[in-house]
Computed example of a mutant assay.
Amino acid sequence: MTDRPEPWEPGSGPVAAGKRHAPATERNRDAIVAVLREELPQSGLMLEVASGSGEHAIHFAAAFPDLDWQPSDPDPVALASIAAWREEAGLSNLRPPVRLDAAAPWPAERADAILCINMVHISPWAATLGLLRGAGACLSPDGLLYLYGPYVREGVETAPSNLAFDASLKARDPRWGLRRVEDVIAAAYAEGLRFDRLVEMPANNLSLLFRRR
């Protein structure tokens, strides 16, 4: 079963106002950290695109205290949630969230790595193209672009649960849906990014890793 988008739940704790909880983050965050430990630099600025509730940003900033983390999202509700989680966590290496729409011009000027988790399939293709364009422009030489989520691959059977998930996404918005890995790789190459490797992840998800050429 893939990590399906679920309605956010109200947060809890001393800074509950504005906090949202996305259950999928607890299921995938440690598996993602295991991949990132092999790939992230020793220091630098990590930009997370489409940070959602902000729970991944908190977990990653705690797991990599020597890295500077910049969460972002286009949704005001998400930005409020990220800010609330950040205030509660009190992590010195986690910056205040910024508004960033992947498909629009980016406020960020430089990043040593860019992460985007569970956005590509829950957004129009234009958002993915904007993400790749922004990564190609902002990443340092050989900087990492890390994508996580469910995909389809040529010559590889798609899990029935992912096929059902794809149908449900397209029913909600015909512009959404699982993308072909090959299409993402081709679009990334056009923006100055080379495909580095693919990592099989739990729950029929994949990690796709790119480097700026």
Rank of each mutant, 00 (worst) to 15 (best):
D73E: 12
E26M: 13
E88P: 01
G192R: 09
P202Q: 11
G149F: 01
W69D: 07
E39Q: 15
M46P: 01
G192Y: 02
R212E: 03
A17W: 11
L91F: 06
R110Y: 10
W69H: 12
S161Q: 07
I32D: 00
V120D: 00
K19G: 06
I185D: 02
S92E: 08
A16Q: 11
R86K: 12
A63M: 05
A78I: 03
Q70Y: 03
I114S: 01
A83I: 02
V77H: 06
G52K: 00
D3L: 15
L79K: 04
D166H: 12
A62D: 10
G136L: 13
R172F: 07
A167N: 06
S53H: 10
I114M: 15
R99Q: 13
N205M: 10
L132K: 00
G11D: 08
S207F: 03
A164S: 14
K19L: 08
I32Q: 02
P65L: 06
A83C: 06
F195S: 02
A159H: 14
H59S: 15
W69K: 09
D68L: 09
A34C: 08
E88N: 03
L163Y: 08
R179Y: 10
R27V: 15
N28P: 10
E87F: 10
A78V: 03
L40W: 01
R29M: 09
V49T: 01
D196F: 14
L132Y: 01
D183W: 04
